[in-house]
Amino acid sequence: DRHVVVQTFPKRKRADEQMRESEERFTLFAEHSTSVLWIFDAKTNRLEYLSRACEQIWGESRDVLMEDWSRWTERLHPDDREHVLDVFKGVLGGDSTTCEYRITRADGSVRWIRDTLFPIRDEHGRVRQAAGLAQDITRHEGALVYVVDGGEAARQALTRMLQGAGYQVKVFATVRAFLEAAPVLVPGCAVLNVSAVDAGDLMVPRRLMARRIGLPVVATGERRGDVGLAVQAMKAGAIDYLEVPYTTDALLAAVASALAGIQDAAVGNREAEDARSRVAALSAREREVLHGLLKGGTNKTIGKELGISPRTVEIHRAHLMDRLGAHTLPEAVLKATAGLKPSTSQNEAKRRGDGWRGQ
């Protein structure tokens, strides 16, 4: 019996380590994914896990949604609610499926969701959990402009100008209302009226970037001969400044440039997310080999550092390149580097927030 215990303990220890590594990879992927990962407990009828991305898509606090499951069903579009609940019951009965439906957020906007749902069974084959991966598939054409602050007449004139050019426009009468809604707004450009009298308006771009909210700001205002207002707005992070009165062409050019930047960032972020998920899927040993490669190590030097043979390093290297979808070592390094970097919006926030300090 003692012999059996001695032989079993290392296996159990290794199994525990593998389980811990698997949980770490899951958490790393879930918390960095722009899709919503969720797990529902069939016995308690409560969400057991919900990833942070739900706050951006559903426009609700993760804690609130986890605390009250009915908040999720309330957000289902009335025309889709019955169908989605039937699909969900089917998953609890053992079905795996993909479902597309709409949700209506608190701000009244509608988003299309594609949810891949599947059951999780216990050792007896009974469904104990339902889980899924929900993606926002709403088509945002990058044509949404938020008009913020300024007088009523000015906001109406600006709205007509932008709508005449084909943009969708949402108006915020105050900076405070805009900042409160900003975390859950669909990506777009903000046109902000700033005033030398109210210095708080000038800090809006910096506040957005500090909270990692990707809404570029085009500032407008009356300098009245004082170039300081324009300088302050640009230092605060506005991508452009237009002095009132400005021409229609000048405003539309500034808005178009801002929205083009959003589309470029979105493409970059999707690629970075894919790279991050691939890196997160690597085993602990594969990540150690990867870090060795990123430092310029060879199979021999990496093997010596990790206490394994160069041949074993080569095997791990081949596995990680396959997981990264890379055909050459330089390609693997580029993809891994992208997967280890913060997102474009995070980099932009850091650059904008710190870049003016030395000027």
Rank of each mutant, 00 (worst) to 15 (best):
T174F: 06
A165L: 01
Q168E: 14
A254G: 09
V175P: 05
F172P: 00
P205D: 12
G166Y: 01
A230C: 07
P183A: 11
Y167L: 04
L162S: 04
D198W: 08
Y146M: 00
D149S: 15
G164Q: 03
V184Y: 14
G221T: 01
R160W: 07
V255T: 05
D198I: 10
A230H: 05
A196K: 09
A219L: 04
A154M: 08
A143P: 07
R212V: 04
P205R: 14
L202I: 14
A254R: 12
L208P: 02
A253T: 08
F172Q: 00
V227M: 10
L162M: 07
G261H: 15
P187L: 07
A196G: 15
A157Y: 03
D198C: 07
A256K: 01
M161V: 09
V171P: 05
A233P: 08
A230F: 08
N193A: 07
A190T: 09
A173C: 12
A153V: 12
V204F: 08
G221V: 03
R160K: 04
L229S: 08
V197T: 09
A199L: 11
V227K: 14
C189Y: 10
M161Q: 12
A157H: 06
G228F: 10
L229M: 11
V194E: 03
D149Q: 11
F172W: 03
R223W: 06
I213D: 12
G225I: 01
L251C: 01
T220S: 01
G214S: 13
L252S: 02
G237L: 12
A173P: 13
V186R: 15
A253R: 07
V218T: 02
L215D: 09
G150D: 02
R155E: 09
A260I: 01
Y246T: 06
T174S: 13
A210C: 03
G164A: 01
A219N: 06
G188Y: 15
R223P: 12
L185T: 13
V204E: 13
Y241Q: 02
A154T: 10
E152M: 05
V184K: 15
Y241P: 08
G150A: 00
C189P: 03
Y246V: 07
G188R: 12
G151F: 01
A173D: 14
Q163G: 05
R211S: 15
L185F: 15
L179Y: 07
G221N: 01
M234A: 06
V169T: 02
A210E: 14
V218R: 06
A182Y: 05
D198H: 10
V184R: 15
L144A: 08
Q232E: 12
M203T: 11
D249Q: 10
V194S: 00
D198S: 10
A230Q: 14
A256N: 03
S257F: 03
V231H: 06
R223E: 15
A177Y: 08
A230G: 12
A233C: 12
R160T: 05
V186H: 15
A256D: 08
G261T: 14
L242G: 03
G164W: 02
D226W: 04
L242P: 00
V145D: 05
V145S: 03
A154V: 08
G151W: 03
S195R: 03
A182S: 11
A250S: 06
A253D: 10
L259E: 05
V231S: 08
P187T: 09
P245T: 00
Y167A: 01
V184D: 10
